[in-house]
C-alpha cells in the first residue's frame, strides 16, 4: 500500500507552523512522529494534501521538572532522568505504548492526539468498499450502531488517562494566541470531534503541576499481547495518602472504553479513608461508567468487567507502593 500524495512543509517555529496551517486550512495535518498518521494515510483515511512537520520547531522540545515539550519522543521520555525521578508512573505508562520501535519515533503530543479507533474505520479502502464505509471515513452512517449522529470510534491513547489523573494541563497555541486546557477537560464530543483543539491549533507542551509529584500514579492496560497492541481497555489512577495511609486525593480514568477518556475524581467521597476501604466502591463506579462498544477485538462485556479488575489491582499496587517493574531502576 502506498501513501497518498502530499506536500511536506518543515516550519522551524510555532508561528510558521500555525501560518502554514491557516494557509492550507482544511487540507493540512500537523505531523509529529507520524506513526499513527502515516498508517491512516496509507489507508486513505481522511488524508490531507499538506503535512506540516513539527520536527524542527525547537519550542516543542524540552523536558523540565514541570513541563514536557509535545514533540518529545516517547522512548527518550521513558528514559529521561527527570521523568523517571519525578513521574515514574508516567515513565512506566509510556512503556505500554505500542512497541519500542514505534516509541522511538512517536511523540507524547502525538500520543495524546492519537486518532480514535474503530474496527470499521481502521481498514483498507478495499475492505471498506466491501462493507460500505463508516461515518468517520467516507460515509455518513455508523457501522457499529447504525445511526447518523454519533461516531463510536474509541479514544485509545495510553497516556491521557494517567496525565489527566495527575492534573496535567495542555498548552495550546493558535493564530489567535495561547491557552491552557487540563487534560481531563480536553477530550470532548465523539469519535469524530474528539477534543477541544481548534482547526489550526497546536499542542505545544504538557505542564505537570508541582503538587502532583506527591501522587502515586499508575496505568494498567488490557490487550492480548504485552506489546504492539492498542489498549482494549486501560485504567489509570493517582492517589495521595497521608502519613496514616488515608486518602487525601484520588482520581481514576479509563481509556479505550468510550469515545473519549473518562476521568473521575473520587477525592470527595474517599478522603480520609484507606484504599482498601474504598476499593470496591471506586472500581464498581468506574466500571459502571465504562461504555465500550463492539468495535475492538475483545467482547464488550469482558472489557467492561476488566475495568474493575484492573483498577482494583492498580489501587492495591499503589497502596503497597508497587510498580509493574516494566522499567529498571534509574
Amino acid at each position: 500500500m502506498i501513501l497518498s500524495p502530499f506536500q511536506l512543509h518543515r516550519p522551524d517555529s510555532i508561528e510558521a507552523a500555525l501560518a502554514l496551517a491557516a494557509e492550507h486550512a482544511a487540507d493540512a495535518d500537523f505531523i509529529g512522529g507520524g506513526t499513527d498518521l502515516m498508517q491512516n494515510y496509507k489507508n486513505r483515511l481522511n488524508a490531507k494534501g499538506n503535512l506540516i512537520a513539527l520536527n524542527e520547531v525547537a519550542e516543542l522540545r524540552g523536558v523540565s521538572a514541570t513541563r514536557i515539550g509535545a514533540m518529545e519522543r516517547l522512548s527518550g521520555l521513558a528514559d529521561h532522568p527527570i521523568v523517571r525521578r519525578d513521574w515514574p508512573g508516567l515513565a512506566e505508562a509510556i512503556t505500554h505504548v505500542a512497541s519500542p520501535l514505534i516509541r522511538n519515533q512517536g511523540t507524547i503530543g502525538g500520543n495524546l492526539l492519537v486518532e480514535t479507533r474503530c474496527y470499521f474505520f481502521n481498514q483498507t479502502p478495499f475492505w471498506r468498499e466491501t462493507k460500505g464505509s463508516c461515518m468517520k471515513a467516507e460515509s455518513d452512517e455508523c457501522l457499529v450502531i447504525p445511526q447518523k449522529e454519533i461516531c463510536y470510534a474509541a479514544y485509545s491513547g495510553d497516556l491521557a488517562p494517567l496525565l489527566g489523573c495527575l492534573g496535567a494541563v495542555l498548552e495550546l497555541a493558535s493564530p489567535t494566541g495561547r491557552r491552557e486546557v487540563p487534560v481531563s477537560e480536553f477530550y470532548q464530543g465523539d469519535g469524530i470531534t474528539k477534543n477541544v483543539l481548534g482547526e489550526n491549533e497546536l499542542v505545544v507542551g504538557i505542564v505537570l503541576p508541582d503538587g502532583a509529584r506527591a501522587l502515586r500514579a499508575g496505568y494498567r492496560k488490557l490487550r492480548l499481547r504485552d506489546t504492539i497492541d492498542y489498549p482494549e481497555m486501560g485504567v489509570a489512577a493517582a492517589v495521595k495518602l497521608d502519613d496514616s495511609s488515608r486518602i487525601t486525593e484520588l482520581r481514576a480514568a479509563t481509556t479505550a472504553v468510550d469515545v473519549v477518556p473518562q476521568f473521575a475524581d473520587y477525592t470527595g467521597t474517599c478522603a480520609g479513608r484507606t484504599i482498601a476501604d474504598v476499593l470496591d466502591e471506586v472500581a464498581d463506579d468506574l466500571q459502571a461508567n465504562a461504555q465500550p462498544k463492539k468495535n475492538t477485538a475483545l467482547p464488550v462485556g469482558y472489557r467492561k468487567k476488566m475495568v474493575g479488575v484492573f483498577l482494583r489491582r492498580l489501587l492495591r499496587d499503589l497502596a503497597d507502593g508497587k510498580s509493574e517493574g516494566r522499567i529498571s531502576a534509574a
Partner: peptide
C-alpha cells in the same frame, strides 16, 4: 496488528 501472533513476550 489485528491478526494477533504472539510476540517474544
Amino acid at each position: 496488528l489485528d491478526y494477533k501472533i504472539p510476540s517474544a513476550l
